[in-house]
Design a protein around this nucleic acid. Structure first.
Lengths: 336, 336
DNA sequence: ATGAAAGCGCTAACAG
DNA sequence: CTGTTAGCGCTTTCAT
């Protein structure tokens, strides 16, 4: 086995010596400062590559008092919705030279708070966070220390931040109206938690569409659930236990939709008698048995918008907080 | 709108002054150094919280020449397999006080290389990487600068690293044998790229099981594919175009399995006539129409093992590289 | 047990 | 256009 000499990384001073210039000049070359004699710059670059110089970003960050790292906190990285958002963020920020520090809060405000603290300690340039709990999540720790923050998916209760959210109300209304037009009348709703931003907005949209169509709302057709697969499963079992079961269900998120499909399959419900509509991408789903439409949210766009907002704020920390509401989206027929 | 004073963060020197001690003492308290007078330590802690001190990890990292950050590079964060692995890594490393810097190489060796460079510049304590291309991925950049590396999922071609891989050969053999025992005889295989570590191993396992059962291999039953959803879809269409179609298919990964199911559904193949087996978690899949078994790999364990290996190497950089081969896993009946 | 002081690697005034 | 120099905030010998 060959023993590789732990070749100590060359530093700017080594490069400077090698190129016969000062460290300042090397630093200028490193930062593409235009006022360096092209010939000297070339010599420095030669030394740079000859010595195999590698920047120490930690030192640079300390000196510059800013880091090219952005923190991202999501409640569940396994959820396709958030993976898409994160991809959007990553793609957009890479162009600006930022790296991502991705954290999974697991929907736990304590864990979230601890990540917030860690990110702040890491002197990240900014943080994009999908709050675990829009009411209890505490972002003041960051804002008080002047770290730029962008909130996504759910609006944060306290304070005003740059935010990117979907127009969930209109989206839900769209899905519901679609069923109405298709002649469905017993349209149920498996709702997300009332206290969540998305949950309450989607419920409102559902109710609004029913009202607009002149269909009386039936309390028995609205099941409060919790955004979990299991919750969706239980909700469907509850809805179908009724003597007058629904002929369509608007489901407030992707995980519950999977649970719902599982329940329908298990109960062997005739696909002709029921139609489903859901939010958020469900890319790994393959049930082609039950009719399912999903609201195509352009999820990655939420990420790119958030990134743009963050970059804008980093550039101008005192700008007014801006809330971007992304249009409801288009209905995508997923299976029929 | 209230203007929040951009309260400049207190530094150790501020705390020291406030507590009437030296910066060294504050630092010792910060690091739980036992040889500090308990009374003084208490006083320092009081100042710490009174002033709302927040550690600047960048400065600490520069001084300590080490960072409590670990880089993780995966080819596709949207793949449930990798999300699970990342969760495993995250959970395990959080206990050791590390944060994760997650990068998505998008199966692109160039992007991967650039992340490798960035992570190295960030002075991360170590890197866990699932190489985009086990042959062309270049990890020497890291190893030459002494950054601990753990390779997961696929073995890296050049050099020997700490690695964690599944026993893919045995796993594929297990799935295949299961079909044989169930009386199936025309068992097909939708294979991953031959040059990939997992692809070739799974193919070998499949062939091995057939040989062990004394079943002649039929070239027409083996379709080379590319691990993509679309690839799985095309493979099934190809297999079913035959006059003697398979009665079972061993599919080399989760994405191709989804494509396969889509094709079967589209062709409206009788579920009784075909059975599927797949690798990797497919948690968001909900097809209960076709019989599907998957190899339960304990995916998160790959993450925790990788984390353990990395921590071990950080602690003892000169230890011999170790390759952990995780047992094939148990067959999980996913739908029947 | 505590403090003084040096210095991690880099950048940005400031001079020249 | 280039060099000198003073730190960024923290930790850690080395004295005391």
């Amino acid at each position: 086995m060959t023993v590789v000499a732990k070749s100590t990384r060359p530093k700017v001073v080594d490069v400077a010596r090698h190129a016969g210039v000062s460290t300042a000049t090397v630093s200028r070359v490193l930062n593409n400062n235009p006022r360096v004699d092209p010939e000297i710059a070339e010599r420095v670059r030669a030394s740079l590559s000859e010595l195999g110089y590698r920047m120490n970003s930690v030192a640079r960050s300390l000196r510059r008092q800013s880091n090219s790292v952005v923190g991202v906190i999501v409640p569940d990285i396994a959820n396709p919705f958030f993976t898409d958002v994160v991809r959007g963020i990553g793609d957009a920020l890479r162009d600006d030279g930022y790296m991502l520090m991705l954290c999974n809060s697991d929907d736990d405000t304590d864990l979230e708070a601890s990540y917030l603290r860690l990110l702040s300690a890491q002197q990240v340039s900014g943080v994009i966070v999908a709050p675990a709990d829009s009411l209890r999540s505490d972002l003041t720790e960051l804002t008080s220390t002047g770290v730029p923050v962008v909130v996504i998916d759910r609006l944060a209760g306290t304070g005003d931040f740059d935010s990117v959210v979907f127009d969930n109300r209109t989206g839900a209304a769209q899905l519901t109206a679609r069923f109405v037009e298709a002649g469905r009348r017993r349209i149920a709703h498996i709702a997300g938690p009332e206290r969540t931003f998305t949950g309450s907005a989607r419920r409102e949209g559902y109710l609004e569409a029913l009202a607009a169509a002149g269909i009386a709302t039936d309390g028995a057709l609205i099941v409060d659930s919790d955004y979990s697969e299991e919750g969706g499963y239980r909700a469907v079992r509850e809805l179908l236990a009724s003597s007058t079961p629904p002929d369509a269900i608007v489901i407030a998120n992707n995980a519950m939709t999977l649970g719902a499909i599982r329940a329908l399959t298990e109960l062997d419900v005739d696909p002709e008698t029921i139609a489903l509509a859901s939010f958020d991408p469900v890319p790994w789903s393959t049930s082609q048995r039950y009719s399912l439409v999903v609201l195509d949210h352009e999820t990655m766009r939420m990420g790119t918008e958030a990134a743009a907002l963050l970059v804008a704020r980093i550039g101008e920390p005192s700008r007014e907080p801006e809330i971007r509401r992304l249009s409801a989206g288009t209905v995508a027929v997923f299976a029929d």
